[in-house]
């Protein structure tokens, strides 16, 4: 499968690989909830996200709402495209000028 969620507890880093769309939304939500529950999540690596839609966007927004301290990092092109279209770059840790943190 093109989707994979990996949580590195030591680094507190959760990485989503592949598509982050409505088809993976439930699974990703479970991963997010588990990672938050472990109290060790500090950052989310988006570099490997190949496809991104509104359901994915909502997941990131919800994550930010539940755990504002978690940093979103290494936004992939797919993510950047959606964030700039919806004008949500600052909310989701994307520097509008540099195009990534």
């Amino acid at each position: 499968m093109s989707y994979f969620c990996h949580f590195n507890a030591e680094q507190g880093c959760l990485r989503v690989q592949g598509e982050l769309t409505i088809y993976q939304a439930s699974a990703t939500l479970q991963a997010f909830r588990a990672a938050c529950a472990s109290m060790q999540l500090t950052q989310l690596d988006l570099s490997q996200v190949t496809d991104f839609d509104s359901a994915g966007l909502q997941l990131l927004l919800a994550l930010k709402k539940s755990a504002p301290e978690v940093q979103l990092r290494h936004h992939s092109d797919a993510v950047i495209k959606v964030l700039s279209l919806t004008n949500l770059m600052t909310e989701l840790d994307l520097d509008p000028l540099s195009g990534g943190v």
């Binding site: 909830r33 909502q58 919800a62 994550l63 539940s66």
Partner: peptide, 16 residues
């Protein structure tokens, strides 16, 4: 302007 106030926290999110 995207209004995201209505998005709930993870615990209450209906992913679809």
């Amino acid at each position: 302007t995207t209004s995201s106030q209505a998005v709930p926290c993870l615990a209450e999110l209906e992913p679809e």
